[in-house]
């Protein structure tokens, strides 16, 4: 296994370097080839085809999500856009995607200094959801905002108290310049400069980008070149157990 098989010092110095990049220098870190490009594209294609014999529930607002809820799908900003939201408490729709997402979560846990499988169990204080999104619309799908920076929220998935420790991840399932152009995911770096993943930051299909959640970000201006993939990616929000566990 990645963490416990190597000597602790080797691992720790790598993890500390990643932290330096995220928390101090750049505001993000790219794990190149987290999955193979071919693998990433085949996942994006099967999900964009809509052929699964699986019923996704209509959209739940973040604030409505509760443990036990079904996986859901929404179309924003327009009808061709897809976001499939999958919970830890449901059986995986796509076992391969599920495994990849759990591995990504472990990586984030190492960087955030948490137990390796934090967020994947229902007793954890934050519970993972992974969200595969395909954007074809040029309109803004995520308006500029920062998370855990105490910005007022209409639709909260938990406590938004200041927490600069928190990282978000973007697993790239399509390529800037090949499948979409002009827009996509913009991230404010630690020097307050807005960067477009794929154009200003080397982030290709199959790469996993870890970024500081409290830096401003937005998804806008996508011009699709491939009408199935457009800008496809997976993101990894977490829900506060206190909010989603009605039995507690």
């Amino acid at each position: 296994m990645f963490y416990y098989s190597k000597t602790k010092s080797d691992n720790q110095s790598f993890v500390m370097d990643v932290r330096k990049r995220i928390y101090n220098q750049d505001g993000y870190f790219v794990f190149k080839n987290f999955i193979d490009a071919e693998k990433a594209e085949s996942i994006a294609r099967r999900w964009s085809s809509g052929r699964f014999d699986y019923e996704f529930h209509d959209r739940f607002a973040n604030s409505e999500v509760r443990i036990g809820h079904p996986n859901y799908c929404y179309h924003r900003p327009g009808s061709p856009d897809l976001s499939y939201c999958m919970h830890m408490w449901n059986a995986p729709v796509d076992q391969e995607l599920h495994s990849i997402c759990l591995e990504a979560q472990s990586l984030r846990n190492l960087v955030e200094g948490r137990a390796l499988h934090f967020g994947t169990q229902l007793h954890d204080p934050l519970i993972l959801q992974y969200r595969l999104s395909r954007t074809l619309s040029t309109d803004t799908s995520v308006f500029p905002h920062a998370d855990f920076l105490e910005e007022p929220r209409r639709d909260s998935m938990g406590d938004h108290a200041y927490d600069p420790r928190r990282c978000q991840m973007t697993l790239m399932l399509s390529d800037y310049g090949t499948h979409y152009k002009d827009g996509g995911f913009f991230l404010q770096n630690n020097q307050d400069k807005q960067l477009l993943l794929g154009r200003d930051v080397s982030a290709q299909i199959g790469d996993l980008v870890l970024w500081k959640y409290s830096n401003k970000h937005t998804v806008t201006g996508v011009v699709p070149m491939d009408q199935d993939l457009g800008f496809s990616r997976v993101i990894f929000p977490s829900f506060d157990k206190e909010y989603v566990d009605v039995s507690a």
């Binding site: 993890v15 370097d17 330096k20 928390y23 101090n24 220098q25 200041y162 600069p164 404010q188 409290s214």
Partner: peptide, 30 residues
Amino acid sequence: MFLPENYPKQLSPILDAYGAHGLIPDYSAV
């Protein structure tokens, strides 16, 4: 480091120092 508006400005270089040493800007750092 970016701070919420109601936080003291002097906290920013302190949190930067945590990051510079590969440490997490955790709850007690905030």
